[in-house]
């Protein structure tokens, strides 16, 4: 009895901490960068509204959009990761597993080496590349009713195919285009077009709602397809729908910020370890934690070597991996 109580309280506490983490991460993201802002300075600047001073411009036109962008991308990646892990029943699944990374990079690099600059066409090309790869993977795996094994295998194969084409493109590209492509592939939240926030809200928000509506199906899918089929789920169709949503989320994240690793892999696992595998809770929690996590990681990437910026993927892995290992070691029961 005492033990369950403790468990109950620690779970309640961690849920409370999760809710607090979002405003906290937002605050950290806004206050750090090439110069720090204290709580009072930040409040004063926020109350003053957008304006002409350097601090106001930096806060309103640079840090604010970027913090929101980091939050959106983090949420999209965590949601896509959670969905892929459930539908593929594979703990190693992440948003990029099914060749999405290769496809998106191929699209972006093709646009870059064709001489388009990184402002508008490159994200669109990455988006199309990611969705195109997923569609191809789905068409190949459909013959086997989209079993997880077929999906993963065809995904990895199509991913390597895209990777080979990518290497060739990089090899023959002019040095500058190749350099730009490498930066793009490392993931960078400063590349997003300022106007991108307006549509990405809608896109990622509807992804979250659609996935939450499918939470019961996701729970059943994790039980295995036979169980799911016996309980009245049309496995093939459900998998396709889940796929399309997760793919759309991944493609949006990639188009906005390039390839940011680790968030989509580790955040769903952390949420599962802390709050259990039920998707009705897991999905919104993963979205929340993913948002706060990427906001903090990006704030660190922007400020440790300021004015220079380090790749955010370095920070996500450095922060995420030890925390995940700690949780894994504490929860001896396993996953």
């Amino acid at each position: 009895m005492l033990k369950t109580d403790q468990h109950f309280f620690s779970r309640r506490f961690s849920q409370f901490a999760l809710l607090l983490s979002l405003p906290l991460a937002f605050y950290i993201s806004l206050s750090s960068g090439s110069f720090g802002l204290s709580f009072n300075e930040l409040t004063a600047l926020l109350l003053a509204g957008p304006g002409e001073t350097t601090e106001q411009v930096i806060l309103w036109q640079i840090r604010l959009p970027r913090a929101l962008l980091a939050g959106l991308v983090g949420a999209a990646l965590s949601l896509a990761g959670a969905t892929f892990q459930a539908t593929l029943r594979n703990p190693l699944a992440d948003p990029y597993l099914l060749g999405v990374s290769g496809g998106a990079a191929l699209g972006a690099v093709a646009a870059l080496t064709a001489g388009f600059s990184a402002t508008l066409l490159v994200p669109i090309a990455a988006f199309c590349g990611a969705l195109g790869t997923l569609l191809l993977v789905y068409l190949v795996a459909r013959a086997h009713n989209c079993s997880p094994h077929t999906l993963i295998l065809s995904g990895v194969m199509i991913g390597s195919l895209a990777g080979a084409l990518l290497l060739f493109l990089l090899w023959q590209a002019p040095t500058e285009a190749a350099r730009q492509a490498i930066f793009w592939m490392a993931g960078n939240l400063s590349l997003a077009h300022p106007g991108a926030l307006s549509w990405s809200w809608l896109w990622i928000g509807s992804g979250l709602i659609l996935l939450c509506l499918h939470a019961p199906q996701l729970d059943l899918m994790t039980q295995g397809e036979e169980t799911a089929a016996n309980l009245g789920i049309h496995v093939g169709r459900t998998r396709f729908v889940l796929f399309a949503i997760a793919g759309g989320l991944t493609a949006a994240a990639v188009a906005l910020a390039g390839m940011i690793g680790f968030v989509g892999l580790v955040i769903p696992h952390i949420c599962r370890l802390l709050w259990g595998p039920g998707h009705r809770r897991l999905l919104p929690f993963a979205a929340l934690l993913g948002s706060s996590f990427l906001m903090i990681a990006d704030a660190i990437a922007r400020s440790v070597y300021a004015p220079a910026e380090i790749p955010v993927g370095v920070v996500t892995a450095l922060l995420g991996a030890p925390f995940f290992l700690y949780l894994l070691q504490r929860n001896r029961g396993g996953m």
Binding site: G33, S34, F35, T54, V57, I58, I62, R63, L112, T113, G115, S117, P174, E176, A177, Q180, F183, N188, S190, R302, Y305, A306, P307, A308, E309, I310
Partner: peptide, 24 residues
């Protein structure tokens, strides 16, 4: 090093020189 617009606005140099590479 890789910078961002924030660093550029903060440091606000008198002159900005862009070396024009193709594809930029």
């Amino acid at each position: 090093p890789t910078w961002n617009m924030e660093a550029l606005l903060r440091i606000d140099p008198e002159v900005i020189i862009v070396s024009a590479h193709p594809g930029q």
